[in-house]
């Protein structure tokens, strides 16, 4: 029981950085790039900016956790 609890906890912790990635991806889908000459949807610029920040921060967070763990394990 204790092992399952610990395993679930790790999965949950590892999933937290996925939330900004999902939110960022949704925002980027909601505000697609405007074709040249086309009328942009209101808020596209801000939406894409926030989407990009969330998306890349989430990716960085996961990579950072991996780097810390690999460093701790002496791999890097």
């Amino acid at each position: 029981m204790s092992d399952i609890k610990a395993l679930l906890e790790v999965l949950l912790l590892a999933a937290i950085p996925l939330l900004p990635i999902i939110a960022g991806r949704l925002l980027l889908k909601r505000f697609p790039k405007t074709e040249a000459g086309a009328e942009p949807v209101p808020g596209t610029r801000a939406g894409r900016l926030i989407g990009n920040i969330l998306f890349w921060c989430g990716i960085l967070a996961i990579l950072m956790i991996l780097v810390f763990i690999l460093n701790y394990k002496g791999v890097i």
Binding site: A6, A14, I69
Partner: peptide
């Protein structure tokens, strides 16, 4: 969020990983 990320990493490094190693 950086504090949250640091705390998550701390918990994984100093609880989860050694726990499973001990198991």
């Amino acid at each position: 969020p950086a504090f949250g990320l640091s705390s998550i990493t701390r918990r994984v490094l100093y609880f989860s990983i050694p726990y499973f190693q001990d198991r």
